[in-house]
């Protein structure tokens, strides 16, 4: 079973992995032969050794700070996003009020808004959570709402002809129909949320990978910046994989229970 999974994995990603290795090798060669100075692009081996040398502050102090912001912001976005979508779905009036506001909220340049967040929340974790939330709740709302609305009228009529009430139609038809679209939004949001937490730290923080990379960039330490980016990338990939796994679990479970 595990062998099969590994084989599948290699079949899907071997080209990408091969390509990445070639690119990294070229970069390594460019830096070592001094064609490109290492403060512009660091050598990949330098980045790796930077991560190993600084694993304690990087992974324990800064990553855990970023993950906490991510977790709170993303959780609020998921719960709040689903709630907003469901309420909009059931009330046309609320939809007409809220939907434009949701869209407009995405037009605000976050960077411009951040001093206000700092004003409201200070340099606490909540200014970062606010940025995370604002960046990632949109795909959840739109994914859930569009998914709920995507249900074919014919299916609804079929259940209504059996005497189903609104709640039964919602539970047995509209929720399962909305799951694929919801999870598209969910997977996008989980990646955006991590970026959001990092941006939040750039704008003012005393810990976290965003703060770390900003400090390193101030010191012209490209290896440090790329070390933080590498850690963030790996975490992002893992989060995306986790989201895909949750999608499979929930979709299976819901189809069995309902």
């Amino acid at each position: 079973m595990q062998m099969k999974a590994l084989k599948n994995f290699l079949q899907t990603y071997s080209l990408f992995i091969g390509f990445s290795i070639i690119v990294l090798a070229i970069v390594e060669w460019l830096v070592r032969s001094k064609i490109v100075p290492s403060f512009i692009i660091p050598a990949p081996t330098g980045v790796v050794s930077m991560i190993f040398a600084n694993w304690q502050p990087l992974l324990i102090e800064h990553l855990s700070a970023t993950m906490l912001e991510f977790f709170i912001g993303f959780s609020i976005a998921v719960i709040g996003g689903i709630l907003i979508a469901v309420i909009m779905f059931f009330s046309k009036t609320i939809e007409k009020i809220v939907y434009p506001a949701v869209v407009i909220s995405q037009m605000i340049p976050i960077i411009a808004l951040s001093p206000i967040f700092v004003l409201w929340f200070g340099y606490t974790i909540w200014s970062k959570v606010a940025v995370t939330f604002l960046i990632c709740f949109f795909p959840i709302v739109v994914g859930t709402y569009d998914g709920l609305k995507s249900c074919d009228k014919e299916y609804i009529e079929m259940l209504r002809s059996m005497g189903a009430n609104r709640f039964q139609i919602f539970q047995k038809l509209q929720i399962p129909m909305a799951l694929p679209s919801f999870f598209s939004g969910f997977k996008m949001a989980i990646v955006f949320a991590l970026v959001g937490a990092t941006i939040g730290e750039w704008l003012g923080a005393s810990e976290g990978l965003g703060y770390y990379s900003r400090r390193m960039s101030g010191n012209l330490n490209a290896e440090g910046v790329f070390a933080a980016i590498t850690v963030l990338t790996i975490v992002g990939i893992l989060l995306f994989a986790l989201a895909s796994w949750i999608e499979k679990r929930v979709t299976n479970k819901w189809s069995k229970a309902n």
Binding site: E154, E157, M158, R160, S161, M162, G163
Partner: peptide, 9 residues
Amino acid sequence: SLGDVGYMP
């Protein structure tokens, strides 16, 4: 009323 007959669309 709804639910009184079997309907096949």
